[in-house]
Design a protein around this nucleic acid. Structure first.
Length: 270
DNA sequence: ACCCAGGCGACGA
DNA sequence: TCGTCGCATGGG
C-alpha cells in the first residue's frame, strides 16, 4: 500500500465532472461514498478520488501517469465540444452534461464487462461484476479484489459461475476467457489492428456482437471513432439525428455517443 | 402480473 | 440477408 496523495489539476473550461463520468454507464467498479468521493479499483490499483477546486484528488495506489491516462486528462474536451457544437442538436446534448469524459479503461475488463451488459441494466451489471471480482479476482493487500484475469476464469464451468447470477451470459464469459487466455484471441494484437479487423476479431467470441465489440473498442482500447448503438442510442438517433451522425462528430464519435447516450437516458426529452 | 434492461445466437424463410 | 424469438435475472 503506497497510499500517496495525488492532485490532477483540471482546467476550468474542461467542465470536468467526476460523478457524471463514473456514473454514466461506461465503467462498473466505482462506488460513490456518502461524502461524494468515489472508490474504485483499476488494474489492481485501489483509489479514492474526489473532485475539488484543486482538481482530482486521488488517494491510493498508482501514480500521476497511470491515473492521468485513465481519466484521459491530456485530451481537451473543451476543444472536442467546440467541434461537436457545429451541430445545434449535438450542442444541446453536450450541454446537458458537458463534464462526462470517456475513460481509457483496459481491454480485458472492458470486454468482459460489456459481455455482461447485454440485455441487462447498469445496476445489475455492477452487481455481477462485483461478485465476479470477489469470487475469482486476486485479493489485494489493501483490501478489495482485482478484476479476474482470463487465466483465472478459463478453466471454470458455467456451474462455477453460478454465484455471479449472470444468467445466460456465463457461457459467453467463459468463451471470452478461454480464447483470451489461450491466445486464440490476442487482445494486445487486437489493440494494434485496423478497426474493422479488430471488430471482426472480437466478434469471434460467443456473446460478442457489433455493440459489445464497439463498446470494448471505445472504452477499453481507446478507439475514439467507435460509436456503440444500444437501445437508448437507437431511440435517440432516430429522434435526434434521422439523417445520421453529423459530419463534425465523426472524428470524436465516441465522445459524441457518450453525450447523446447520457442525454437520452437522463434528460427526459427522448 | 407484466415489461424492460448499454444484445446476441439460433433458426427459418 | 432479413425478422423473430428465447435467453437468466432482477427492478419498476
Amino acid at each position: 500500500m503506497t497510499n500517496t496523495l495525488l492532485v490532477l489539476p483540471l482546467a476550468a473550461e474542461e467542465n470536468f465532472s467526476l460523478a457524471d463520468t463514473l456514473n454514466c454507464g461506461q465503467c462498473f467498479r466505482w462506488d460513490e461514498c456518502p461524502d461524494g468521493a468515489f472508490e474504485g479499483i483499476v488494474e489492481g490499483r485501489f483509489a479514492r478520488v474526489r473532485q475539488t477546486p484543486r482538481g482530482l484528488e486521488l488517494e491510493g495506489d498508482g501514480g500521476e501517469e497511470f491515473w492521468g491516462d485513465y481519466f484521459d486528462i491530456k485530451t481537451s474536451y473543451a476543444a472536442v465540444r467546440a467541434r461537436l457544437c457545429g451541430d445545434k442538436t449535438l450542442a444541446e446534448a453536450a450541454a446537458f452534461a458537458p463534464g462526462i469524459r470517456v475513460l481509457r479503461q483496459y481491454p480485458w475488463e472492458t470486454l468482459c464487462s460489456f459481455i455482461i451488459s447485454q440485455n441487462n441494466n447498469i445496476k445489475r451489471i455492477r452487481g455481477i461484476v462485483a461478485r465476479m471480482c470477489e469470487c475469482f479476482g486476486e485479493k489485494l493487500p489493501g483490501g478489495g479484489y482485482a478484476f479476474p484475469k482470463p487465466e483465472s476464469l478459463a478453466g471454470l464451468t458455467a456451474d462455477d459461475l453460478a454465484p455471479l447470477r449472470s444468467g445466460f451470459r456465463a457461457w459467453y464469459i467463459l468463451d471470452a476467457a478461454s480464447k483470451a487466455a489461450s491466445g486464440e484471441i490476442d487482445l494486445a494484437k487486437v489493440a494494434l489492428m485496423p478497426l474493422d479487423e479488430a471488430r471482426a476479431e472480437l466478434q469471434k467470441i460467443k456473446g460478442v456482437g457489433p455493440k459489445v465489440a464497439e463498446c470494448a473498442l471505445l472504452y477499453g482500447f481507446g478507439r475514439g471513432e467507435c460509436f456503440p448503438l444500444d437501445v437508448w442510442m437507437k431511440r435517440a438517433m432516430k429522434e435526434l439525428f434521422p439523417e445520421g451522425l453529423p459530419e463534425c462528430a465523426k472524428e470524436n464519435a465516441g465522445i459524441a455517443q457518450q453525450y447523446i447516450f447520457h442525454f437520452a437516458r437522463l434528460s427526459g426529452k427522448i
